[in-house]
Nucleic acid binder design. Structure first.
Length: 583
DNA sequence: GCAACTCTTC
C-alpha cells in the first residue's frame, strides 16, 4: 500500500515537516485517515513525537479523528507527544477531556503519559488525582505504571509520598529503587538518598533489584550535592567492583561528584581515563575546573583539546569556559571566547557571565553597554550581577539603577536590598540606608536562610546563622571566641558593612561572628585533630567578612580550609585563598 | 505495539 510504504520510508529515513503534511493530505484524500486506525495512529505518533513533527499539527489532526474512539491509541499518541514536548502542562486538560468523554477509558499507558506530563510541569495535585485513578482502575499491580507514579511524586518534591508508594509496592525492581534514589538526590535530602544507596548495596537483593549503572549515577549526583569525598570514593569503588564503571554516564557522574566534593585531581583522573568522551564528559570536566578557579586550565582544555576533538561544544560548554574565566579573573580571554562563540547563539546566561567578568574587573561602563546590546531582556540575575559589581566598585548610580530594575521585577530577595544598602553605607549616606530598611520592612522581603555544614567522622553537622541547635553549641561558641581573639591579633577587622540591621556596632560584630560558615569552621577546629583539614559547604555565596576571617584562621591554626559555596571552591591555606580574592 | 530509573547549568 502506498501510504504504508510512505510512512515506513518516513520512519526509517527521517524527513521534514513538509513530508508529514503531504502524508496527512494523502491519508485524508484517500479516506485512510478514517478507515485505517493503525495508519492514523502511526501518523499521529510520527507527527507528535518525531523531531521533525509538530505537536500543534498533531492536535489539529487528532481533532478530526472519529468519535467516539474505539481504542485509546490516538489519545495516547498525542498525550505522549505533549508529555515529551516543550510545554507538557497542556496534557492535563486533554486527559480531563478524555476522562469526561469516555469511552475510551484511560488505560495504564494513558496514565503513564499523563504522569510524565504532570511531573515535568511539577503539578503535584494532578499526581495525586492520577494516583487515585490508578487505584480506582485497579492498575496498582502494573509495576511500570507505579514506578512512573513514584517518579512523579519524587520529581514534584513529595518524597514522603514517593516513599509511601515504594513501601507499598509488593514487587520492586531496580528502576523502582532508582526512581526513589534519583528523586531524593535532587531534593534537599541528599543524605537520605545516600542512605538508600547504602541499603541497596548492603542488602542481598534479588537479581531484578540489583544496582545498575543508573543507580550509580543517581548515587553520585546525591554525593555531588552533599560534597562528601569519602562517599564519592565509596561509590567509585562500588562501581569498579561491580564492573559498572565502564559506562560513560557513570564516569561523567563521578567526574561531577569528585569535583563537587573538592577532589579535583580525582575528577580529572576519571575524565582523562574515560575512553569515548561525550559532550557531557567535556562539560563536566570544564565545570570542575571552573568551579575550582582553574580558568587557565579550562581554557587550555577547551581550546587545545576539545575544539580539536570530534565533539562540538554546546551552550553549557561555553558557559563553563566563561565561568572559568570569571572565577580566575581572565577578562580578555573571556571576552575572546564570548565573541568567538560558534554554532551556539549566546543566551542570557552567557551575557550574564561576561557582565560578571567585566563588572568584577571594574569595567562597569562596558558591562552596562553589553546589557544594552543584549538581544534579549536582561533577567533578574543579570541585574543582581550588575548590582554586585556596582557595590564592589562603589558606583552609586549604577547600583540604584540596577536596584530599581529589580524592584520593578518584583524582587523580594533580601540580598538585593543589602547590596544597595552597602553602597550607601560605604558613602556614609545613612538616610538612604534607613530608607532601604523601611522599604524592606514594608515589602515582605524574604530572606533565604544561609546554612553551612561540615563532616566529621562520617557524620554531617549542619549550622544556621546564630544557631544553638547543635548539641555541643556551648563548646562551639567558646571555640569561636578563641578563634575571634586569635584572628584579631592577626589584624582582622570585622567588615560590619556586610550587616544591614540597625543595631549597635558591637552587635553587628556578633552577628558576623555567628555566620553559619564561621560556626562550621569553629566546630571543625574543636572536633578534629590539630592541623587536620576542614571542609565546609555553604548554600549561599561566602560573605566577605567570613572570607577574610577564613584566610586568617587557616594561618592561625595551620589548617587547610576548603569552603564550597554556591558558585565555587575556596581553598584557604597559610593566610591566602585559592581564589586570589577574585570572586 | 505504545511506558519506568541516568550525567553537564542554577
Amino acid at each position: 500500500m502506498a501510504a504504508e510504504a510512505h510512512l515506513g520510508w518516513l520512519l526509517g529515513r527521517g524527513a521534514t515537516f513538509g513530508h508529514i503534511k503531504q502524508l496527512h493530505a494523502h491519508l485524508l484524500t484517500t479516506g485512510l485517515f478514517r478507515r485505517s486506525p493503525p495508519l492514523r495512529t502511526a501518523f499521529l505518533e510520527l507527527c507528535a513525537l518525531s523531531p521533525f513533527g509538530d505537536i500543534t499539527h498533531a492536535l489539529a489532526a487528532f481533532r478530526s479523528t472519529p468519535h467516539p474512539a474505539t481504542t485509546t491509541n490516538d489519545w495516547n499518541a498525542v498525550l505522549r507527544g505533549i508529555a515529551a514536548g516543550p510545554d507538557p502542562s497542556g496534557a492535563l486538560a486533554l486527559f480531563a477531556r478524555m476522562f469526561s468523554l469516555s469511552p475510551p477509558r484511560p488505560d495504564a499507558l494513558t496514565l503513564s503519559f499523563a504522569l510524565r506530563a504532570t511531573s515535568r510541569s511539577s503539578a503535584l495535585p494532578a499526581v495525586f488525582q492520577l494516583h487515585a485513578l490508578t487505584l480506582r482502575f485497579g492498575l496498582v499491580a502494573d509495576n511500570r505504571l507505579v514506578t512512573t507514579l513514584l517518579d512523579a511524586y519524587a520529581k514534584c518534591s513529595a518524597p514522603e509520598a514517593a516513599l509511601q508508594v515504594f513501601d507499598e509496592m509488593p514487587l520492586r525492581d531496580v528502576a523502582t529503587w532508582n526512581a526513589l534514589l534519583a528523586g531524593l538526590a535532587l531534593g534537599p535530602h541528599p543524605h537520605t538518598a545516600l542512605a538508600l544507596f547504602h541499603r541497596m548495596v548492603s542488602s542481598s537483593l534479588p537479581d531484578r533489584e540489583t544496582p545498575n549503572e543508573i543507580t550509580v549515577v543517581a548515587a553520585a549526583s546525591a554525593c555531588a550535592q552533599l560534597g562528601s569525598p569519602r562517599d564519592a570514593t565509596a561509590i567509585h569503588d562500588f562501581a569498579r567492583r561491580r564492573g559498572l564503571d565502564a559506562d560513560v554516564r557513570v564516569r561523567n557522574a563521578l567526574v561531577d561528584a569528585y569535583a563537587k566534593c573538592g577532589a579535583l585531581d580525582r575528577a580529572l583522573d576519571v575524565f582523562r581515563s574515560t575512553g569515548s568522551k561525550t559532550l557531557v564528559s567535556w562539560n563536566a570536566a570544564l565545570l570542575a575546573l571552573a568551579m575550582h578557579g582553574r580558568g587557565a586550565l579550562a581554557l587550555r582544555l577547551f581550546e587545545t583539546e576539545m575544539l580539536r576533538s570530534t565533539v562540538a561544544p554546546d551552550a553549557v560548554t561555553y558557559l563553563a569556559v566563561l565561568c572559568g574565566c570569571v572565577h580566575a579573573g581572565l577578562v580578555e580571554d573571556g571576552l575572546r571566547i564570548f565573541y568567538s562563540m560558534r554554532g551556539v547563539r549566546p543566551m542570557a546566561k552567557h551575557y550574564g557571565a561576561v557582565v560578571d567578568l567585566l563588572g568584577r574587573a571594574g569595567r562597569l561602563s562596558e558591562a552596562r553597554d553589553l546589557v544594552d546590546a543584549m538581544p534579549m531582556a536582561p533577567d533578574a540575575v543579570l541585574w543582581q550581577t550588575l548590582l554586585g559589581a556596582a557595590r564592589t566598585h562603589g558606583d552609586v548610580a549604577l547600583a540604584e539603577q540596577a536596584a530599581r530594575k529589580l524592584a520593578e521585577m518584583g524582587s523580594k530577595g533580601c540580598g538585593d536590598y543589602v547590596l544597595l544598602s552597602n553602597v550607601y553605607a560605604a558613602k556614609a549616606r545613612w538616610g538612604d540606608v534607613g530608607r532601604i530598611r523601611d522599604t524592606m520592612q514594608g515589602n515582605d522581603v524574604r530572606k533565604v536562610p544561609g546554612f553551612s555544614y561540615t563532616e566529621v567522622d562520617g557524620a554531617v553537622h549542619r549550622f544556621l546563622n546564630g544557631d544553638t541547635e547543635h548539641e555541643q553549641w556551648r563548646k562551639i561558641y567558646r571555640t569561636l571566641e578563641e578563634v575571634e581573639a586569635r584572628i584579631r591579633a592577626l589584624g582582622h577587622v570585622p567588615e560590619t558593612a556586610h550587616v544591614l540591621h540597625d543595631i549597635e556596632e558591637e552587635d553587628k560584630e556578633r552577628a558576623l561572628y555567628q555566620h553559619s560558615e564561621k560556626l562550621a569552621m569553629a566546630f571543625g577546629i574543636a572536633a578534629t585533630p590539630a592541623r587536620a583539614p576542614i571542609q565546609v559547604i555553604k548554600n549561599l555565596r561566602i560573605c566577605g567578612d567570613c572570607h577574610a576571617a577564613a584566610k586568617l584562621i587557616s594561618r592561625a591554626y595551620g589548617r587547610v580550609i576548603t569552603v564550597r559555596d554556591r558558585a565555587r571552591f575556596h581553598r584557604f591555606e597559610g593566610g591566602e585563598c585559592s581564589c586570589g580574592d577574585y570572586w
